[in-house]
Amino acid sequence: MALTREQIESIAALARLELSAAEVPVYQDSLSRILDFVGALERADTASVAPMAHPLPGLSQRLRPDTVTEQDRHAEYQQNAPLTAAGLYLVPRVIE
């Protein structure tokens, strides 16, 4: 399965990854090889097999009581933020 340059560019766009011109052929090559490699799965007969989304069978989701356990710690959390003002995280202007 050979991916085209355009396919790599569209995957990178979907994943929001800037690739340099030099990187594109590298990923074109390695992703194509990975897809060939995982193509081996086609051979397995899975006609009546359910997909396994979770490694432990039979468990179900626990439900949390509806209680507020958190305090306002935005000042501390925003110490990691590249750009904030008045408690808001800032990004370049989004136009809708």
Binding site: V38, L41, A44, T46, V49, A50, P51, M52
Partner: peptide
Amino acid sequence: LKAQRVRQL
């Protein structure tokens, strides 16, 4: 989906 089925196997 195919991979998750083989994972089940």
